[in-house]
Every structure is written in C-alpha cells, then in structure tokens.
Design a protein around this nucleic acid. Structure first.
Length: 422
DNA sequence: GTCAATTCACATGAAAGAGACCACGGTCTAGTG
DNA sequence: CTAGACCGTGGTCTCTTTCATGTGAATTGACGA
C-alpha cells in the first residue's frame, strides 16, 4: 500500500528523468565497456602461465615428484609474503600432477593419489582443529557434523577415511600459521606423526605460511618433521609486477584502454606493499570499474589513485561496520582521543575513554586485559598501528597510532556514532 | 660518576567459566492399522 | 507398533575474566673515586 502511494506520488517528469538515468547506466554496461574479460583480474582466476616463478615451481614439483612413483614425498614447507604466488604455484603443480596421474591411469584399487588443498584462514571454515579435520573429511568424501562430536572421534573418522584404500594423500594447508596461532602446534605434530598409525595409506603435509618466522615458534619436533624441505617465495619486485600486470591487462581490457604509465604506477604502489601481486591486480580491476562507471573510455593514472583510496576505504568501512560492539566502542575511543590531542595515544588513556563511552551507551565494560587483545585484533585489520614502548619509571604500554586517511577516518567516526546511537 | 636494584604500567600467557550451539541416545506421545 | 517430539548429557566454539608472570628503561640509592 505504502509502496503504491509512493509510486503515484512521483510525477511523470521525474520518472522520465529517472528512466533516462537508468538507461545511461545500463547501456554503459555493454557499449562503453573497458573490460574485455573482467574475470581475469579477479582473485580466483588461474592464469595458464605464472611468470617469474619458474624456479620455485620447479623446486616444489621436484620435491613432490616421488608421489608419481607411488612414494611418499618429503613434507614441504613454503614461505612467502601474501601475493607472492605461493597458492597459485601450488595449485598449478597440483593440477599438473593430477593430470599426469590420470594419464598413467593406475587401476583404482592398486593406487591412487589424492591432493587436497585447504585454506586454514577462511574464518568459519577452518580455524580450529575440529573444523580443519571436518573440512578435510568433507573434501575426502566423508560426512561430519559442524559441531557436537568429540575431537578424537573426528580424528578416528579421518584416519578411517584415509585408510579405506591404498593411497597417497598430499595435504596442502594454506596459511597454517593462522591456524596454529589459535590451535596449539601439537595438531601439526599429530598430522606429521599420522603416518606411523596408517598401514595402507600415507600422508604428506605441505604447509604454506606468509610469516617467515613461523617455523621458529614451533615445537622442535614438529619443525623437523614438517619442514623436511623448504621453499621460499621471494616477493615480486616492481618490474616483475609490471610483467604480470601487462600480461593480464592485455587479456582483461580492450585494446588501447590502458593509458601510458598506468601499469607502472600500479606496480609501484603494490611493490611498496611488499610486492603483493594480488593487491596489484585488485588495483587494476577497481580502477577499471571506476573508469567504466564514469563512462570513461580509458584508464588513467588518476583512476589508479582513486582505486587505491577506494580499496582502502572499503576495507576500513567494512570492518568498522561489521565489527562487534566492543570493537566499535574501543575504536571510537581511539578516534576521539586522536582528534583531541593528535599525538601519541597510550593504552591507559584508551581504556579510560572506552570506559566513559561504555557508561554513556550503558554497555558492560570489558577488562583491560581483554582490551589489549582487541587492540591487537584492530591492528591486524589495519585500522591502527601499535608499538610497545617502555617509559622507564612510568611503565610499559602500547603506543597507538591511527593508520587511516583523515577523510576515511571522519567517515568511520560518523558510522560508529550512528550505529552506537550516540 | 657508576652500577645494580627498584619500580611502574602495562604486555603477555595460561587456565577456566559462561552461554550458545549441536549430536546422540533414550523416553514419551500421538497417530495409524 | 512406529514416527516424531522432547529431554538430558556431553561435546565444541567464542568471548570473556582471573590469576600469574614478564618486560624495559627511568629512577633510586649504595658505593667508591
């Protein structure tokens, strides 16, 4: 009813105007397109060639090669910063191995090779021991409820499934460092020791981590058995990033769309962020989207700048909006302090300001211990930067800085005050 | 003046509790033949 | 007799608190030159 009235209330001229506007938007979708195939710049796209990673791929392949001879390869550990091509390369090697094993077609019951990939970081999928196991079981064709069972039972089930037949299982655990931070490392220990419990099947673990110091934090026993072999993926430099980008841009965009210098700029921005190729491609894609939305036929450097800001803003705004109430309160306390003094902010001050805010919105106040953890999490999400400093006689504390552009910050503040009802 | 001890204000770890969610097996209940 | 509802028990997960221990440099105070 309400809807009807509103429709009737709009006079014809206005509707007409709206219609032409929409025409413009919808028509621009197919006439003025900059993109030839946007999917090429999306993160889940797997290119046919992986430039500048030949030697790493060779190393990985040669380590895993024994699997094709029905022998268990050494456990492997792969390091490299985000966007250095680890995941892409391991996927590539996996595909190649599976293709080869298919060509040789061993009879099913004699021997089979299973290579499973699991990203341990994806929240809600697998950041506990139970869930990782459950996920693996699911991938191997078993069925396990999301919760409610004892972990030992799930282990048993996992072994059962693997032991169903004579096979070699290569488990690729991406971003294990994330998982191990939450679970203890004897999870990995169990995994590497699993072979002694298996009679028919064998397991090989490939761990991938973007934290180079991760291995040091492990139990020595786990370390030695997990990283029998190691491969390091160095970050791409700006020139390599340009190569990658050129290749993809050629396929993704129509000819002549990308202006001079755009690719260089893009690569330079990403190279500054430890050579993150993913970031680089994102930048290019978002720049393309912005250009398209403006009905511009070319992508220029200013689009890259805008894309850079937009990516940053979306990331921040999103985590501000979706964060739990306590996170929002603490963030708001930090923003308030930052605006008031524009100087270095310390833990104690934040806690005081946070307590005041809690009283204002009548929310229970968390302990300072907990706030410390939340500050760490905020740092993880890139909202703030913290640094533990000691002021001698005046104690030890975190120094907190905001690492967000001012215009994004004020936007975030508005969102926070609104959603908290202040 | 020098050097070790002290001190502050937290950081950081470990353990444990609360409350939500879920599986499983046993018991109860209503519907069916 | 049986399918489904219901309940109690025991498990995980997340968020949180409590208790304990660690930390780094300014400050203090004893000591000797």
């Amino acid at each position: 009813m309400v809807l009807d009235n509103r429709f009737l209330g709009v006079d014809f001229g206005q509707r007409r105007k709206m219609a032409t506007k929409l025409d413009k938007i919808f028509n621009s979708l197919d006439s003025d397109r900059v993109f030839k195939d946007k999917g090429i710049l999306q993160t889940n796209y797997t290119p046919s060639t992986i430039p500048h990673r030949d030697s790493e791929i060779e190393q990985v392949a040669s380590i895993l090669a024994p699997a094709l001879r029905k022998e268990r390869p050494s456990n492997l550990f792969i390091y490299g910063k985000t966007g250095s091509g680890k995941t892409l390369s391991i996927h590539y090697v996996r595909e190649e191995m599976l293709r080869r094993i298919k060509e040789r077609n061993f009879s099913e019951d004699e021997f089979s090779l299973v290579i499973e990939y699991l990203n341990c970081k994806l929240k809600k999928v697998s950041d506990t021991e139970y869930r990782i196991l459950a996920e693996l079981i699911k991938k191997l064709g078993g069925e396990v409820p999301a919760t409610g069972l004892p972990t030992d039972y799930v282990y048993q089930k996992f072994i059962e499934i693997i032991e169903r037949r004579k096979q070699l299982v290569i488990l690729i655990l991406d971003e294990v460092d994330q998982a191990i931070k939450k679970i203890s490392d004897n999870f990995l220990y169990n995994f590497t020791r699993l072979n002694s419990e298996l009679s028919k099947a064998q397991i090989c673990v490939v761990g991938i981590s973007n934290d180079l110091t991760f291995l040091d934090s492990l139990d020595p026993r786990v370390r030695s058995s997990l990283s029998e072999e190691e491969v390091v993926f160095p970050p791409y430099n700006a020139i390599q990033l340009q190569d990658i980008l050129k290749e993809r841009a050629k396929k993704a965009f129509k000819e002549g769309v990308v202006e001079e210098g755009v690719i260089a700029k893009c690569a330079a921005l990403a190279a500054r962020e430890h050579g993150d190729a993913r970031r680089c491609l994102d930048l290019m894609r978002v720049a393309g989207e912005i250009a398209e939305r403006e009905c511009s036929k070319k992508i220029s450097i200013k689009h890259i700048d805008r894309a850079n800001e937009k990516i940053e803003r979306d990331k921040i705004i999103d985590s501000v909006q979706t964060g739990p109430k306590q996170f929002q309160l603490i963030l708001l306390a930090i923003i308030g302090l930052f605006e008031a003094k524009h100087e270095r902010i310390f833990t104690g001050e934040v806690y005081d300001a946070y307590q005041n805010l809690c009283r204002k919105v009548k929310t229970e106040i968390l302990t300072q211990r907990r706030m410390g953890d939340i500050l760490n999490e905020l740092e993880m999400s890139g909202m703030i930067r913290t640094n533990v400093i000691s002021k001698g006689r005046w104690g030890r504390m975190r120094e907190i800085k905001i690492s967000v552009l001012p215009n994004i910050l004020s936007r975030a503040k508005i969102i926070l005050t609104e959603s908290l009802g202040l």
